[in-house]
Amino acid sequence: MSEAAIVVDRVGRRFGALEAVRDVTLSVERGEIFGLVGPDGAGKTTLMRMLAGVLHPDTGRIVLEGIDVAADPERAKTALGYMPQRFGLYEDLTVAENAFFYGELFEVPRARYRERLAQLIDAAGLAPFTRRLAGQLSGGMKQKLGLVCALIHTPKVLLLDEPTTGVDPVSRRDFWAILYRLRDEGVTIVMSTAYMDEAQRCTRLALLHAGEVRECAAPASLKRRLHGTLLAIGGSDPRAIRAALASAPGVLGVLLMGDRVHVHVDDSVGRTAELEARLTANGLAHGPIETVEPGIEDVFVALVGETA
């Protein structure tokens, strides 16, 4: 990989007694799609806002494309596009007017602005809607317009804070198609997400918990770190199955996944019969106990030592 686009060195941030981010160190290589994953309150948004220069760290240092973000936030902003959870679109302006506003804000030369806008509007599928008020757009279209505005000045780094939360599956798919094109163009992307299927699309992931980075690696590498075996059990009452198996011998963790329960065990061969016997003793009907490949959510729960 090429040299780092972002270097985060022992960064911390407090809000009164709350330590939102604690001693975070990581680097993001140029051209990566780097994911921040963690539950609410893990510190994802605080870290993202510090990367964008909106918040200053209490300790440590962030360097983005060779620029110290805290020391020179205005210069850093020219190198990055930032799309927070609630992007600041003006709902009483049209799609074109919102884009024009951000072009002026970043002092994009008019000729370059027209060229760039045409590219972005076409990629986002917004060409038929340039005269529509932003307030009349669907949630997915608003997010795509937000992305157009964040990219209008051709940043080298794009920061996205849970950009597809609440967006329909088709719009999420379109949004990711745009991100892949940006990556191919050399744009470095850092995004936080609550969707585990999205997390698995990232080049690397940082797993955040209680303000700390617990693990940082490629999704496939993280999955290999899950020792033992993952079993999936379906049934009419998955919550009861989870409760019955949580304290069973050899069970390292349990996770409710829709109508099935993922059970992390130390030895599938020796434990399957024991789990079946325990469920029978509790009068719980269930389907076959199957060995499955772990997902990022399974890995996260195992690595942070929680059950959910």
Rank of each mutant, 00 (worst) to 15 (best):
S2V: 09
S2C: 07
E3I: 10
A4L: 04
V7I: 14
D9Y: 00
R14Y: 15
L18M: 02
A20C: 05
R22W: 08
R30A: 13
G31K: 13
I33D: 01
G35R: 01
G38C: 11
G38T: 12
D40H: 01
A42L: 03
K44N: 03
L47C: 09
M48C: 04
M48A: 09
G53E: 06
L55N: 05
T59N: 11
R61S: 05
L64Y: 07
P73K: 08
E74W: 00
K77N: 05
G81T: 08
Y82P: 04
Q85Y: 07
F87R: 01
G88N: 12
Y90V: 02
D92W: 11
T94W: 06
A96T: 00
E97V: 00
E97G: 05
A99D: 08
F100G: 00
F101R: 01
Y102M: 02
Y102R: 03
F106E: 06
F106D: 06
E107T: 09
E115D: 14
A118K: 11
Q119L: 12
Q119E: 14
L126N: 10
P128E: 12
T130Q: 14
Q136Y: 05
Q136R: 03
L137S: 08
L137V: 02
L137H: 05
L137D: 10
G139Y: 10
K142Y: 11
Q143Y: 12
K144H: 05
G146R: 02
C149V: 12
L151T: 09
I152A: 02
I152H: 06
H153P: 08
P155D: 07
K156S: 13
P163Q: 09
P163V: 09
T164A: 09
G166F: 03
D168I: 12
V170D: 04
S171F: 00
S171E: 01
A177H: 03
I178Q: 00
R181T: 14
L182I: 06
V187P: 00
T188D: 07
S192W: 01
S192G: 08
D197M: 07
D197P: 02
R204W: 08
R204H: 12
L205Q: 04
A206E: 10
L207W: 03
H209W: 14
G211Q: 07
V213P: 06
E215P: 03
C216I: 04
P219M: 11
L222V: 13
R225K: 15
H227C: 01
L230S: 01
L230E: 03
L231E: 02
A232V: 02
I233P: 01
G234F: 00
D237M: 04
R242N: 13
R242F: 04
A243Y: 07
S247A: 13
A248P: 07
V251R: 05
V251G: 10
L252W: 01
G253R: 03
G253A: 15
V254D: 02
L255R: 15
M257A: 15
G258E: 10
D259P: 02
D259V: 00
V261Y: 01
S268T: 08
G270A: 08
R271W: 02
E274G: 13
A277E: 11
G283P: 08
I289M: 14
E290H: 11
T291L: 09
E297Q: 10
D298V: 11
L303A: 14
L303P: 09
L303E: 13
T307F: 05
